[in-house]
Nucleic acid binder design. Sequence first.
DNA 1: GATGAATGAGTGTTCATTCAT
DNA 2: CATGAATGAACACTCATTCAT
Lengths: 197, 197, 197, 197
Amino acid sequence: MFIYFRSMRTKDDIKQEALFEATVKLVNEIGFAASSVAKIAKEAGISPATIYVYYKNKEDLLVSTYLEIKQNLGKALGQNIDDTTPIRDTLKQVWFNMFDHIRAHPNHFHYTEQFANSPFSSLVNKKEIEKYFEPLIMVIMRGIEQKIIKNVDDNILRAFIVHPIVVLSNERLCQDFEASPDNIETAFSLAWDAIKL
Amino acid sequence: MFIYFRSMRTKDDIKQEALFEATVKLVNEIGFAASSVAKIAKEAGISPATIYVYYKNKEDLLVSTYLEIKQNLGKALGQNIDDTTPIRDTLKQVWFNMFDHIRAHPNHFHYTEQFANSPFSSLVNKKEIEKYFEPLIMVIMRGIEQKIIKNVDDNILRAFIVHPIVVLSNERLCQDFEASPDNIETAFSLAWDAIKL
Amino acid sequence: MFIYFRSMRTKDDIKQEALFEATVKLVNEIGFAASSVAKIAKEAGISPATIYVYYKNKEDLLVSTYLEIKQNLGKALGQNIDDTTPIRDTLKQVWFNMFDHIRAHPNHFHYTEQFANSPFSSLVNKKEIEKYFEPLIMVIMRGIEQKIIKNVDDNILRAFIVHPIVVLSNERLCQDFEASPDNIETAFSLAWDAIKL
Amino acid sequence: MFIYFRSMRTKDDIKQEALFEATVKLVNEIGFAASSVAKIAKEAGISPATIYVYYKNKEDLLVSTYLEIKQNLGKALGQNIDDTTPIRDTLKQVWFNMFDHIRAHPNHFHYTEQFANSPFSSLVNKKEIEKYFEPLIMVIMRGIEQKIIKNVDDNILRAFIVHPIVVLSNERLCQDFEASPDNIETAFSLAWDAIKL
DNA sequence: GATGAATGAGTGTTCATTCAT
DNA sequence: CATGAATGAACACTCATTCAT
């Protein structure tokens, strides 16, 4: 009976998963612009026509893949966080969560970087993406209220508490950076110095 | 006859300049992936075949355009800087130089952002690019030596003293950020807090 | 159990009827060439695969639809006709029958016009179609025998007593023609003048 | 020098002519819907990509081909006509002109029939086409004014004086009709009987 | 130096049809 | 009986690049 259920696992899921992995892998290997439908299909071991059984078109495939990755990242960020912990410790936890997640899924991260600079980028609802990162935003707001964090423009704060992680994780920008716990901790202390009052 | 030669030489330069502008403009308007040789040629008012008189191929055109922009940025960064000024003031000058340059040439900046995430990115010699930014690097090194700036990994320092400008200037990342002198000054104070000892 | 079988048979008929209507509707709306199997199936509310339960292939579906329409037209033409009525009155009755039928089923008519100019046209047996129009042909032959109608080539007679109706009913050819009873009667008088001795 | 001029005949014209002929030939042989860009290119002995050097897209190729044929037909219709000839004789001349032209270019005629029932048909300006047939229209109007031709709806008159030619020339509609001078003359006499007062 | 013409290779996408369920 | 899944073949079209002039 168990085996029956396993075999019932619809081909849907298998193919769709293969497509997701193939898409991410190919974008990592040959870049976004060069990742054609035909090549993705070949990598996934299916016919190009089959992609259109699962997705409306290429855009749908790429955007869906992006959203899934972003959602997973959002989930990972909010782990092991509670309201009772001091602001600094909470931010540090988020900081490490992000580094850990990116190191565990480097090519997922690379995919999002590529996607964000592609023409498809404008098709995703930024507000919806931001939803995934609400926990982080809330902590920062609490810090401002408690006069622990500088009360400056949101964008500026994020440029120092979020983007440095992105930059340091980006192989293209920081080719020789070793993401050791020490280095990550050091980087966080700079970020904290930047935003703390 | 002399005039003929003169006009021939002039024409060259005009064409090459037109190509540069057309390339940057088109990448800004329709994105990197959609900027085909044919469209660039049309925008520049020349035949696609003529591009191959000036550049070996499309890659050469795009990379050359990138390098020229980067070189100009490097030059702009080093302006009004001398060894006698205090480290903080020097860095602040560089910081404002960069903001001013990006605001004066927003689509040059946008081009480099697009280029950096294209498949052509890997073709440029990073070391050569870094050369353009030597003045900035020297100042930071002096700061470390003088125990004014934290003695940490290069990449980390740059993530806080260079990339925040890039992030804040990127319309996609900071859609609603107003690059007012006040905001830029504030952002610099955070950057300085991050790296100063 | 009995009811079950009944409902199964009914369902068949419903599907086939839905397919007929969907085919005609789609050809009217998007044209013959653009009417794919997938779209017809969607319009009929069934799976594309189901079409192949009822028809051998696309060609079979389209040809069958054509033949059914033609048969209905043939039946309509022969209504209210008998041998005792004078030739002219009989022809006039047929003439009006045809106009009435076309106006009652404009998209059936449009379908046949589209079909006739499609690659599938050559697949239908012209003789079989002609069978449907035997009554009309018989009247004309009687008219010739009775020396009331000119004794000329069949094709010529038909070009004046049948095709004018088709032409005048064709929206593409006669965009601004109003098929009022007066106009139809007038048109018939021209047709009669053409063929009468 | 003559040879020089001959060799100067731009490749343009040769290819464009080949494309015209290939398009018409293919539509005659396999029908409008089945005439793909690739097949037309192959028939013309060029690469599919080359078609896009001469025409904006498939639609442009097909519409241009149609317009050229229609224009030629229009020119042919108006030959050997003057205002002094009696109405009937003039119409007869036009009638024969049309038959002659269609018989001289049967596949040009077949192409227009196919085109008119294609989705591209709606893209041509009907008024512009009608311009080509102005001479014929003028003669009919003169006939009405002189009370020689019945004063009825334009569409009706055309259904009897123009379309019979089209019908009789259409192999699909009149498979076994022999377009002998006698038959054409006979057909004209029916047409005249239809429209004359 | 400059280009119009030409193209093989590729693009994303839809097609009619089959088949296991 | 009915269908979701799957696909090879075809579709219209664009690509970067070459070459004769």
